[in-house]
């Protein structure tokens, strides 16, 4: 799923401050799971903002609404009336959701309330970890299903750097060294020979470095 974290109240106050009426728009999919922008977070943020503005003696109306998914136009439409009633939208979806709303409501300022951070896994309740960078050319088969492009701080393809220590990464001792995980997995799979194989430079042309990517499914387009 896409993982994000709500911006600070301070920053949110700043970006919505030019407007008198703000709709806080939540998204019920990924950002709900990571406690950044589901219905509950919308309610809390709305309440906190109302308190904050009231304390500052400012008259700003805050309305709440949540759709199932902000990245799908079908769901986005449900927010039409609420958006009409307001001057601006503070979206608590990922960056894609924010843009999907902005695309449909061209004359409404749509502002981000969340910092979208990564594609990750819910490791345990309240802990999310980054696992994939959407490189467009998945090579997990060689690496025992642990992604070095994402999980090694140096994107090393041919084994750990000299700083790997006791299974932890030199950049952050709280984070597992991706290569330690890879070696462990390959050991479990009896594929340690993979380690001896030279991995040539990665082809990044399918990654974000060539401009925005597109997926076209001709069989689904009428």
């Amino acid at each position: 799923m896409i993982v994000g974290e709500q911006k600070s109240i301070e920053e949110i106050k700043k970006i919505v401050s030019p407007y008198k009426k703000v709709l806080i728009l939540g998204c019920g999919t990924c950002v709900k799971t990571c406690f950044a922008g589901g219905e509950d977070e919308v309610a809390v943020l709305a309440s906190a903002l109302r308190l904050a503005f009231k304390k500052d003696g400012r008259q700003i109306e805050v309305e709440e609404f949540t759709v199932e998914r902000q990245c799908e136009d079908e769901f986005v439409q449900e927010s039409a009336e609420a958006i009409d009633r307001n001057e601006s939208v503070l979206s608590l979806a990922c960056g894609a959701g924010v843009q999907a709303i902005a695309r449909r409501y061209e004359e409404t300022p749509v502002l981000p309330g969340v910092n979208t951070t990564f594609l990750g896994v819910l490791e345990k309740h309240g802990l999310f970890t980054e696992e994939c960078s959407g490189c467009g050319d998945c090579q997990l088969a060689v690496f025992g299903s642990v992604c070095p492009y994402t999980r090694c701080a140096k994107k090393l393809l041919n084994g750990p750097c000299g700083g790997s220590r006791e299974g932890k990464c030199e950049v952050d001792p709280e984070t597992d060294c991706a290569w330690n995980l890879i070696i462990h997995r390959l050991k479990m799979l009896g594929q340690l020979n993979n380690l001896r194989v030279y991995i040539p430079p990665k082809n990044w042309s399918g990654s974000g470095s060539c401009g925005p990517r597109k997926l076209i499914r001709k069989d689904h387009i009428l």
Partner: peptide, 30 residues
């Protein structure tokens, strides 16, 4: 470069072998 002192130790020689295969003429260690 090679670091004989980093973990996992068994892997350090494999990595050296890979660097030689890749074309290293000389190695400077940690």
């Amino acid at each position: 470069a090679a670091n004989p002192f980093a973990d996992p130790f068994e892997y350090r020689v494999i990595r050296l072998a890979k660097k030689i295969d890749a074309g290293a003429d000389f190695i400077q260690t940690q």
